[in-house]
Amino acid sequence: TGSPVPASTATLVRVLKNSNTLGIAIEGGANTRQPLPRIVTIQKGGSAHNCGQLRVGQVILEVNGISLRGREHKDAARIIAEAFKTKEKDHIDFVVFEPG
C-alpha cells in the first residue's frame, strides 16, 4: 500500500465524540503538494482538542480503518465528516503519523 510508514511514528488515536464538532482543519490529499491530509488547526472545545492526543502537523493515514492514501482532499474530508456524523460509534479511530 504505497511507501512503508515507519511503524514507530504511526499512532492509533481514539477521539471520543464528546462535543458537537470534531474541531480540526485538514490540508492535503492526492495530487497536491501535501499527498496525505495533514492537521493544520485544532479548535478549542472540539472533540479532537478534548482528546488531547491529536496535534497540528500530524498526517492522517486512516480513519476507522479506511485508508486515506491516494484519496483526493474532498474524498478524505467526506470520510472524516461521515465518521464523525455516524451514530453507529461514539468515537473515531485515527491512525496518524508524526513526520520528522
Binding site: T21, L22, G23, I24, A25, I26, E27, G28, G29, N31, T32, R33, Q34, V40, T41, Q43, H73, K74, A77, I80, A81, F84
Partner: peptide, 15 residues
C-alpha cells in the same frame, strides 16, 4: 522534489 513543486497546493477543510 521537482514533481512536488509543480503540484497545486491543497484546499483546507474545517471539520
Amino acid at each position: 522534489r521537482e514533481k512536488r513543486l509543480t503540484l497545486p497546493p491543497s484546499e483546507i477543510t474545517l471539520l
